[in-house]
């Protein structure tokens, strides 16, 4: 049979048919499993889509290229778990588009940085990292404190994310702008609504300034990283995703 390929090579229609068959086999093997990708996401409670302010912070994180130096993936290895906490679950980044797992750690992993440091620490650290960590080689991001968070299109951003599977509700999208501004304030009439729309949301003036800046957004995002999943109830042996 191996000697018969001359016939194949000299007949373009036959060649085309066999090419399509060959590519289809590869395609089926690579593509079909992706349709059932959700079955590989561990069942864990508590992971919700980002609030509009956190999403704005995520956008800042992307724009500034934080992923170039910081990963967001704690691998199930003893040393990493010892240093950073519980290993990351797929469920924890299922609403990130694109995910921020990263592959390079010039700085530390940030998958569970939420709640590890105070807001004040983050403010000082963004303005001049060496003020709090003298040996740090991270560049300053002081400009974030001076620029208003980009919230004008945040609702449309959420609509786009909904198209790729993030379960934002109509109500969440309709209130996006006000929710974003309210989350960065110590007191607001919108807080009750915000709590209703997003579970376990923290609302406070993250950067200590009156305006809602990019620093507010970024700190809100950093402070929620790795805190959503209820890991105490999680066991990797569970085969059924518990009802949420």
């Amino acid at each position: 049979m191996l000697n018969k390929h001359k016939a194949l090579e000299k007949n373009s229609i036959l060649m085309l048919i066999f090419t399509v068959i060959t590519i289809s086999i590869g395609g089926i093997i690579e593509i079909v499993p992706l349709f059932r990708m959700e079955t590989t996401i561990e069942p864990v409670k508590g992971v919700r889509p980002y609030t509009p302010l956190e999403l704005a912070g995520y956008n800042v994180y992307l724009r500034e290229g934080c992923y170039n130096c910081h990963s967001q993936q704690i691998r199930p290895l003893r040393d990493e778990v010892e240093r950073y906490g519980h290993y990351s679950l797929a469920a924890e980044s299922m609403y990130d588009h694109p995910f921020q797992w990263g592959s390079k750690r010039t700085g530390p992993d940030l998958a569970r940085v939420g709640g590890k440091y105070s807001d004040l620490w983050h403010i000082q650290h963004m303005i001049r990292p060496q003020d709090v960590v003298p040996e740090s080689i991270m560049p300053p991001y002081a400009h974030l404190a001076k620029k208003g968070a980009d919230l004008a299109d945040i609702a449309r951003d959420m609509e786009a994310l909904r198209m790729v599977g993030v379960p934002y509700t109509d109500e969440q999208i309709a209130n996006a702008y006000n929710d974003a501004v309210a989350q960065a304030q110590d007191e607001s009439d919108y807080h009750d609504g915000l709590v209703e729309r997003y579970s376990k949301v923290t609302m406070r003036n993250f950067d200590g300034q009156k305006t809602t800046t990019e620093l507010d957004a970024l700190i809100a995002y950093l402070q929620v990283l790795g805190t959503m999943a209820e890991l105490k109830d999680y066991s990797h042996d569970g085969t059924k995703r518990s009802a949420e």
Partner: peptide, 10 residues
């Protein structure tokens, strides 16, 4: 990955 049902880990 397998063809497990919705909400199940496969």
């Amino acid at each position: 990955p397998t063809l497990s049902g919705d909400g199940e880990r496969g």
